[in-house]
Amino acid sequence: MENAVVINGLTKEYKDFKLGELNTAIPRGFATALIGANGAGKTTLIDILCGVTGRTSGETVYFGDMTDIDSDALRNRIGYCSAANYFPLDWKLTTIADSMEIGFDNFDRAKFGLLCKRFKVGEKTGKKSKSLVKMSDGNRMRTYLAAVLARDTDLLVLDEPGSSLDPLARDMLCDMFREYLSERDGERTILFSTHNIADMEFATDYAIFMAEGRIVEQGFVEDLKQKYILVHGDAEYAEKARPFMLSQSGGRSGFEGIALAENAEMLSAFDTAIETPTLQQLSIGILRKAEEDE
């Protein structure tokens, strides 16, 4: 499998936080989700990958042979967007288009207009468009997404794109992910971060779970769903089952958690119900385990 980005020994040290050392890869042709709690290092990793933030050490290789994130050739191929404050707040749609046109070689003004229409931002009244400061958080995010999707890129990197969107817009975002990937079948890649994977489950192919600046698990979603099982059981067996579980939670009536699939037989001896976990359930289990390990 080809990779869009390969990360070798990447670290970033702050006074109170350390990212890495990270060694991983983002598969080409898929949508990869960075999943983790706030403060897990998702944004720092994304910022480093996009040239927003410098690194302390390590190397990143893009598209097989590009390593200099400061080069224009690479910058033109990456479409990056943050959730908050991506553009100055006094900007309007036209200001954004003017700026993006200078900032990148592949910004398509007409496409930006179409995407704004599709996302239903701007020109509602037919009057001059509003500045970002007068928009709701959700509309601001839609505008950012329209701007970044109006560029013809090979790698889309979005920091928390779904968090301020309403359910309908989030569904539209998932559609746009699939559209982006299918437009040039197998060549384009998406990396996005989220702390709420539920609504993005059906647009996620590969998942990287982060906690405390480290990667705690990663893999293709379908493989992870085979590697782990979701276990429900009666409270009386909670303690007996615990050694075979990765993480579990529960109350007086029963417990729930995830376990490795290889422990399925053991666990079924405790009268448990075993299912394939959803990505959301997997995330909770894996992140809870990471928290307990701390």
């Binding site: 998932c174 559609d175 699939r178 559209e179 990937l181 299918s182 192919d205």
Partner: peptide, 10 residues
């Protein structure tokens, strides 16, 4: 995947 609104890997 686009038509069925599911992920590519599926």
């Amino acid at each position: 995947a686009q038509d069925l609104k599911i992920s590519v890997i599926t």
